[in-house]
């Protein structure tokens, strides 16, 4: 008395779901405010750093061992350019302007 037969396949779902990538370029729903992942990681570390002289580039590197130096440097340059961070005692120490 079982309803035999391949009447219900259920695998037609997704056949038309491709190519729907329109969410790029919207306002975005991620945790970043227009920053890349690396940039926001760097910014968060600098924000979280308690010392008044700011976080050094060396420490940034050791905190982000999976990123190479040039990526970190780019993130720092970007954040500095945007006004999120600024250099302190020298060009390798940074503090955040966002910290309230």
């Amino acid at each position: 008395s079982k309803p035999s037969g391949p009447l219900i396949m259920g695998n037609s779902v997704g056949a038309s779901g491709m190519g729907d990538m329109g969410s790029l370029g919207g306002s975005g729903s991620g945790p970043t405010n227009g920053l890349t992942l690396h940039q926001s990681q760097v910014l968060n570390l600098i924000k979280a750093y308690p010392k008044p002289e700011g976080l050094s580039f060396q420490e940034l590197r050791s905190q982000l061992p999976n990123l190479n130096a040039s990526v970190i440097k780019q993130a720092v340059d970007f954040l500095s350019n945007e006004g999120h961070i600024y250099s302190t005692v020298d060009d390798e120490h940074f503090k955040s302007t966002d910290a309230e």
Binding site: S80, E82, G83, H84, I85, Y86, T88, K95, T97, D98
Partner: peptide
């Protein structure tokens, strides 16, 4: 340390400009 303060002010100005 005057340099630091100027850097900070410059950064804050940049930040403000971005949000304006």
């Amino acid at each position: 340390l005057e340099r630091i303060r100027r850097n900070k002010e410059a950064a804050l100005l940049r930040l403000a400009a971005r949000h304006a």
